[in-house]
Design a protein around this nucleic acid. Structure first.
Lengths: 132, 132
DNA sequence: GCTTGACCTGGAGCGCGCTCCAGGTCCCAT
DNA sequence: ATGGGACCTGGAGCGCGCTCCAGGTCAAGC
């Protein structure tokens, strides 16, 4: 029973390419990952756990640079928990703002959709009762 | 009484730079804008109206290429209303999906925040009743 | 022994959406 | 007449986040 994950497994699990996975490591989002005797990477379950977080944060547009900061805090040890907490909390706030912004845009777009629907209704009115 | 807007006015109104405004024009998001005798741009109110839509769509991550398609439909005339409608509707759907995705990520992040709060609570428990 | 496939490396390249620049024109106020 | 400010042009450059590549190693199965 293996206690590690191969690059292929990890890539598939998070829907990342091998290139991206290596890029994340180079960029400092992951520690230097363990290797098999032949040099292949072996991801531990805590790497995978971190990647899960990374994917969430990336998917919500946290830039790589900030992700690296976060990862560095983790590597520095338990005394950085308050800083990590602050990072996550402020990210949540930004996210709330972003979602609100998107909702506002949606409203404007919806308005335009209604307008277009109106235009169509007028140009081709009730097909059973055409205007004379 | 002027019936046009200067580049500076438009840029400020939509919080864009003059460069971006010109870029949008080059990219085909705007028609070739009118000019003053001295060559300065003069935006009409329908340009401004379109820009308002463009800003909404860009702010919700519609790529420039798709925006150009949309703008071209407008230029082609009223018979493209159904196509425009479809574009906006499918954009709204994508947006809903995107927002749902972000909410899902937020839940994961919130979970982590709670975990960190737990860690902190444990490492520095009730300050008035320290563990012996 | 040979092929296949998964993985390795360092480094170059790319697509997107701007952003910046040099050098110029025009107009208005001092 | 001079200076400042708003704007013009074409084209180069940039930051980000990957993505691709050539050339190589290794392990397992036929």
């Amino acid at each position: 029973m293996r206690n590690y994950y191969t690059p292929g497994e990890v890539a598939e699990r998070f829907d990342l390419t091998l290139d991206t996975l290596r890029y994340y490591e180079k960029a400092g989002l992951l520690r230097r990952v363990d290797r098999s005797p032949s040099g292949h990477r072996r991801y531990r379950s805590d790497d995978v756990e971190l990647l899960n977080m990374i994917r969430c944060l990336r998917d919500t547009d946290m830039p790589i640079a900030r992700l690296r900061e976060f990862a560095e805090l983790i590597r520095e040890g338990d005394h950085t928990v308050p800083d990590r907490l602050r990072m996550l909390q402020s990210h949540q706030e930004r996210l709330n703002e972003r979602i609100a912004e998107m909702r506002a845009c949606q409203a404007v777009i919806e308005h335009k959709i209604d307008y277009y629907l109106g235009v169509l209704a007028e140009s081709s009115p009730d097909p059973l009762k055409e205007t004379p």
